[in-house]
């Protein structure tokens, strides 16, 4: 597995040698549908038909629009998704995503990076 990244827009996506996808949203962004779509395209591009667990770093995201949340209901290269946040705002955003939409793969919110990684790896 070759580490790979795809940068641009409001997010960056990297596929590590450990086979872990890492999606980082830029600090303070308002995620719109186009941003979500672009991020998903990058994920799919890196995965190339394979599936990988994905860590989504959303600690500094300002807002996620309804339509943007809807994009993540579409199956993509991620086999399971760990949403990583730190603040109560992150928790609210993540739970709106989890509650209102049905994720296409196992998805959970974490405030601890290590717990998130453990969970992702446990499903590998």
């Amino acid at each position: 597995m070759v580490p790979d990244t795809a940068d641009g827009g409001k997010a960056s996506v990297a596929l590590g040698v450990d086979g872990l996808l890492h999606l980082r949203w830029s600090p303070g962004v308002d995620i719109e549908v186009e941003d979500a779509r672009a991020a998903m395209a990058k994920v799919n591009e890196l995965c190339q038909q394979e599936q990988h667990p994905m860590l989504v770093d959303m600690a500094t995201v300002a807002s996620v629009s309804r339509e943007a949340r809807g994009i993540w209901s579409i199956p993509c290269g991620a086999s399971r998704i760990a949403l990583l946040g730190t603040s109560p705002v992150d928790r609210v955003l993540a739970n709106f995503f989890l509650g209102v939409h049905i994720p296409p793969c196992p998805t959970r919110f974490f405030t601890s990076r290590s717990e998130a990684l453990d969970w992702l790896n446990s499903g590998a």
Partner: peptide
């Protein structure tokens, strides 16, 4: 508009915004 603090009040503000969005939808 939530603040940069991202504390509980911002979480409530974010929740209200999201609920308003859902309601609008």
């Amino acid at each position: 508009k939530p603040s940069e603090h991202r504390d509980d009040i911002d979480a409530v503000i974010t929740g209200v915004n999201l609920l308003a969005e859902e309601l609008g939808h």
